[in-house]
Design a protein around this nucleic acid. Sequence first.
DNA 1: TCGCAATTGATAATGATTATCAATGATAGC
DNA 2: GCTATCATTGATAATCATTATCAATTGCGA
Lengths: 149, 149
Amino acid sequence: MSLLAKKRSAAMAAKLKDSGLKATPQRLAIMRVLAESKGHPSVDDIYRRLQRRFPGISPATVYRNIMLIKSLGEAVEISLAGSASRYDGRKPYPHPHIVCVECGNILDPELASLGDMTREVTAASGFEIKSFRLDFFGVCPACRKKSGS
Amino acid sequence: MSLLAKKRSAAMAAKLKDSGLKATPQRLAIMRVLAESKGHPSVDDIYRRLQRRFPGISPATVYRNIMLIKSLGEAVEISLAGSASRYDGRKPYPHPHIVCVECGNILDPELASLGDMTREVTAASGFEIKSFRLDFFGVCPACRKKSGS
DNA sequence: TCGCAATTGATAATGATTATCAATGATAGC
DNA sequence: GCTATCATTGATAATCATTATCAATTGCGA
């Protein structure tokens, strides 16, 4: 377990404690999976990964807890047209993603030119901006090789 | 009907002709609604708006044609977590949106600092980038007034 | 240790979207 | 203009992710 994973896991547990809600084994395990996963897992990914340790766990439990963790501000959802949402518990704040439309892999690009778009949009529109999403869609190097594009 | 709407409508009809597919009245009407709508309508919005002129039109027809128009490159989809997708037939290329999380209104901000992020991401990741989305979520001026936030 | 509210697992319900299919209609070629 | 053909329509069922419901269980503070 990496240092980041430990930090993120602890942060989630702390927020949970603050909230007064219960520290269920399933809940803590879901938090750990989110904190450890670099691949932006879906609910089903998390569900399948947890079945080893919790043979009787329900997908509903995973959904409910992901919702909770999101509402605690400890994970972000990447909602995708036509497929299940993916979740990021390692950077629980808005940040850009690159999605491979062939294999579904998602990674976080470094993007120097992000600037302060939020401020600009706020100034121009009068909206009170709460969050944003900046996602790129394309074909990853591995899939480009495969399909010869 | 504005000049832009006329231009967009004509562009869609031209692409349709090129494709060899048929110019159905329903299809052309859906194109016109997309070309005229500034409010980023949902399939259901378009469906309800067309019921006057086409009393027996089916939602499936609207879905199918929106899909087609999208695949012709003449509209873009704004897919939203938890609610129906919205469509933009006036700017059929990726561009930023602001979504009001209270009332659902969507508008297109002017954003000077967009730069060439796509090129930067391509260079950094090796992906072949096909499209992107940049969407801001917040509360619009009207809703801020209402809820006193 | 007890009691209660929160949580779980199972399952049903929802809502958007997609697929299926028989009947209809647009259009190219004559 | 007429016709054959193939796309398209409307109706409806199916799908899929997500959410709601509810009885049984369990964490946790008093």
